[in-house]
Nucleic acid binder design. Structure first.
Lengths: 167, 167
DNA sequence: CGGTTTGTTCAATTCTGACTGAACGGTAGA
DNA sequence: TCTACCGTTCAGTCAGAATTGAACAAACCG
């Protein structure tokens, strides 16, 4: 029976690891999140390294960045010398907010280019500028949509125990 | 004045190229889209290679995948031997729909794992299964939000073409 | 027919960044 | 103090993807 669980766990880790890579993040960082979701409890530094079969150095760097991104928290247990990690309860919403902010940043970056262009170039680049503004607007619209979804999910996950229906 | 435009173009290409890499796509594919947006007209195969400073082989592979993804269209000009490429007018919406579908696929992938787990593993993996379903639901919610944004953007961009036809 | 242009393909190359592993500093207990 | 353990760091390694460039086939023109 633990067999079934562990194969399911392996499949889950592989799936999320691949998804993590597909969106530009490292495989391990995705799998750390996946393992914490699967286990539903705080895991120690050593447990992560063993369960994922990766070096302690990788655990260190990846947990640090995940911590800085506000996805997981490092917790100390009295009497234990190892660090433990647990998911922030709004970790999914945090990831969405991150994406939303990056889109907004790209959008304003486009607008900045457009502003400099129309300021110094007269109206020769007018058509291009209009298209760039549309393209920037697209980024902002998507950012807004994702931010809204983030709020929705945050409202559902905050202070809710896992297993509650989200439908 | 063309100076200003070309520096703005270079900045735009760099920005979108980096954004493209950040989300797991190739730099060149993002820059092809960016160049077509900036120019606002169909560009030839050769123009793309020269303007982006990349090999013809790269243009070939990237335009093919973008074409397959429904982002741009290959058009022939009578009398011209070169292929020309232009953006599909709903190209942004198409990219969003692609992301939405990938999220849905990941979500159902998680649900499949969960189904196999609860079917064969008894109730020992019950807690994990509940958490996995929540995690799958998260993916579906985001997919839905992005799909909605895609529809919104499609509605905004489709009417820009005068005398447009539906499908 | 040859010569030119064009797009595709694929083996080779380059490049990026993830990952490792060992050295290091810090901490707690004996 | 010494020892054992723990997390961090970083130079080195490695894998996979992106990109190149040359070979190739097709279409066109003289």
């Amino acid at each position: 029976m633990t067999d079934h669980i562990s194969t399911a766990q392996q499949e889950f880790l592989a799936l999320i690891g691949a998804a993590s890579e597909a969106e530009g993040k490292s495989r391990i960082s995705g799998q750390i999140i996946a393992l914490l979701v699967f286990e539903g409890r705080a895991l120690s530094f050593g447990e992560l390294a063993v369960a994922l079969g990766v070096s302690r150095g990788s655990i260190s760097t990846n947990t640090r960045t995940l911590e800085a991104r506000g996805v997981l928290a490092r917790v100390q247990r009295s009497g234990e010398r190892q660090d433990y990690f647990e998911l922030v309860d709004v970790h999914s919403a945090t990831l969405l907010r991150e994406i939303s902010q990056r889109l907004d940043r790209t959008g304003t970056g486009i607008e900045d280019i457009c502003a400099r262009l129309s300021h110094s170039g007269g109206d020769s680049g007018h058509g291009a500028c209009a298209r760039l503004r549309d393209y920037a607007a697209f980024h902002h619209i998507v950012a807004k949509a994702i931010a809204t979804a983030s709020d929705e999910i945050e409202g559902k996950t905050a202070h809710l125990r896992p297993g509650d229906s989200v439908e």
